[in-house]
């Protein structure tokens, strides 16, 4: 087993444990912490894949902004331990079925595409920040501008939502 494979398994185990813990934990803050663990493990995996810029953005934006917002809202609303209400059978059975079907579908797809993925392995250029910025500002400039518009809309939406109604 090579070093990178060992690192991969360690990080993958961390991510899966975090994701399972997200489900198992009863308190939202603990779930949020588990999710942060998953995100940091994924950032490590991105580093392993040579995507340093994405790894840094992942931690800065996901870990440092989005999850902080979640923790902030949980603290603000003083969310307690999750209430246990019985899952409605109508929703539960199809839901479980759906998960199984999805897992099966994904597994089948992966199993079928094994060959094609492995043959193209390691032909990649080095993923540099320069390359990414070239792509964003040349090939993907319109989507990029659209996202800035999306953020503007989101900011407006959040502002409107946060406003208290005048009585």
């Amino acid at each position: 087993m090579t070093a990178s494979l060992a690192v991969f398994f360690a990080l993958a185990a961390l991510a899966v444990i975090g994701a399972v813990s997200l489900i198992v934990q009863k308190h939202p803050i603990h779930s949020a912490l588990s999710l942060i663990v998953v995100m940091i493990a994924l950032a490590g995996l991105y580093l392993l894949l040579g995507a340093e810029f994405v790894a840094a953005v992942q931690i800065i934006v996901y870990g440092g902004a989005i999850m902080v917002l979640f923790v902030f809202v949980i603290m603000l609303l003083n969310a307690g331990v999750e209430e246990h209400t019985s899952i409605s059978k109508m929703a539960g059975a199809p839901g479980l079925l759906l998960v199984v079907a999805l897992a099966g579908f994904v597994a089948a797809t992966i199993a079928r595409s094994t060959e094609s993925v492995e043959t193209t392995l390691q032909t990649g250029e080095i993923a540099s920040t320069l390359g990414i910025s070239n792509m964003i500002f040349k090939d993907f400039v319109y989507p990029f501008e659209l996202t800035s518009f999306l953020i503007l809309v989101a900011v407006l939406g959040a502002t409107v939502l946060a406003q208290r109604e005048k009585s």
Binding site: E52, A55, A56, I60, G64, F72
Partner: peptide
């Protein structure tokens, strides 16, 4: 990614306090 890595680490610093 020197300074980005630094910002990534300091961005997580808020959790300690919160």
């Amino acid at each position: 990614i020197g300074i980005l890595a630094l910002f990534a680490v300091t961005a997580l610093g808020v959790y300690g306090v919160a």
